[in-house]
Structures are given as C-alpha cells and as structure tokens.
Computed example of a mutant assay.
Amino acid sequence: MALADRINSLSRRLPTWPVYILVAAWVAWLFWLGLSGQLGPEPINTLERKYGLFALQLLVAGLAVTPLRTWTGVNLIRFRRAIGVSAFFVVLAHFSVWALLDVQRLGAIWADIVKRPYVTVGFLSFLLLIPLAMTSNTWSVRRLGPRWRQLHKLTYPALLLGGLHFWWLTKGWQWEPLLYLGGIVALLSLRIRLGARRRPTRARTV
C-alpha cells in the first residue's frame, strides 16, 4: 500500500474533534505561560505574536488541504473544517490579547486600526473570517447551497491580508514573514488554477 493510501486509511478512522481540543489546549497553555511570567519581559506582546503566528499557520494548513490531495493523493478534507474553525478561534484570541490586554481603550483600538496599516489589514482579515466561522456548520452548508462555496472563498483574501499583516508588522526584511507570504501566494495560485481547471469539466457534464 502506498504511503498516501496508508495516511488516508488512518485519517478515515480518526475523529476530527481532537483538532479542537489540541488547539484550545495550546492556546490555554500559552496563556498560562504568559500569566506565570514564562514568556519573557514582554509577555503580552509575546503572547499576541505567538497567537498570530499560530493562527496564520492553521490558515495556511487549511488552504493546503486541496493542493495536497491533488498533488500527493493525501486526503485530509474531512479535517479542513476543524482546522478552519480552530484558526478563527486563535485569531480571536490574538485579537483579544491585542485589544483587551495591550491597547485596552476603545478609542486607542480604533486609532490603531485607522492609523497603522499593518493593524488595518489584520483587522480586515479578522472581519472576513467572521462570516466563515459562523457558517462552518452542516446547517449553513445545506441552507446556503452553492452560495456557501462562494462565501468561503473569502478565505483567500483573508489569508493574503493575514500574510501582509505579519510581513508589515515585522521590522526590516526578515525571511520568516516573506517565506509565509510567498507560500500563501503560491498556495492561492494553486487553488485558483485548480478551481479554473474544474469549471470546464463541470460545464461539459451539465
């Protein structure tokens, strides 16, 4: 049996709920490290950045599921919803630490959103993810029908804005945010190409 077949066989036997548990446990563990003074001299800033990076990693992982299936045969589609919802949970934690623990005042929060470009794009990414999280359930899929798939293409601009947010807030030309941004652009290009390739096939079968 090929490696991809073995992975697929194993993934079919695994439930998706551990994804939520593991992500929530990691978020809680990082928060505990901050409370106990184990995140360095600036625990709020460190916690904020760790949450943000983890959220970006989860969003990239969710976007990579379809190209991974296409190019390697590894099918993790059934985990994509859990990854996406967990990513939003971590984004919400990232935003909450920034708003409630770092900035703290409503006026200052709005001022940051308006005046700082990296905050602006990060906030826009957060807003785009809200309807996706709210409709990541079976009832919404059935209720919206084909519109559900169109709505969830908001993942693309949300992830791109998230990558820009990470790159913009980093001082200087550091390789890590550029690597993430380049990977996001590459994955988005693959997804768009795969979508364009499937549309003519569907048109011929109608």
Rank of each mutant, 00 (worst) to 15 (best):
V114C: 02
L58H: 06
P18L: 11
T120D: 11
S189Q: 02
L164C: 10
N8P: 06
A24P: 07
M1N: 11
G145E: 00
F89K: 02
L10Y: 13
A133L: 07
L144F: 00
A93S: 13
T155M: 12
L188E: 11
W167V: 13
V85D: 05
T46P: 04
N137F: 06
L129S: 05
A99R: 03
P117K: 14
R13Y: 11
E176P: 09
K153V: 00
V97N: 05
Q38A: 14
R80F: 08
R116Y: 12
S36L: 08
T135P: 02
G34R: 01
A25T: 15
L154T: 01
F126K: 03
S86W: 00
I77P: 00
W148A: 00
K171N: 13
S96Y: 05
L178E: 08
K171V: 13
V27P: 02
G163S: 04
G62V: 00
A203T: 03
D102W: 11
I77Q: 12
T170I: 09
F89Y: 11
W26D: 12
G34H: 05
W110Y: 15
L14S: 10
V121W: 07
P131D: 03
W110D: 13
L68C: 07
M1I: 12
I21R: 10
G73F: 05
A203N: 06
V23D: 08
G40Y: 04
G182Q: 07
S11P: 05
A2V: 14
L76Q: 04
V60H: 07
V65N: 07
W167C: 08
W148L: 01
S189N: 05
K115C: 09
Y156G: 07
F166T: 09
R81I: 01
S9F: 12
R12K: 15
A93F: 04
L188K: 01
A108P: 05
K115L: 14
I192T: 13
L188A: 07
S140R: 00
F95E: 09
P41E: 06
T70Q: 15
W148F: 04
L124E: 03
W148H: 02
W98P: 03
P177W: 09
P117S: 14
L160V: 04
V206P: 09
E42C: 01
K153D: 00
Q150S: 06
L194W: 04
L33V: 01
T46E: 15
A4W: 10
P200W: 04
L106C: 03
L188D: 07
T155P: 00
Y180F: 15
I7E: 06
S136M: 08
P177E: 12
E176D: 13
V97F: 02
R198G: 01
A111Y: 11
Q57G: 12
Y51Q: 08
L101G: 08
R202S: 02
A186W: 13
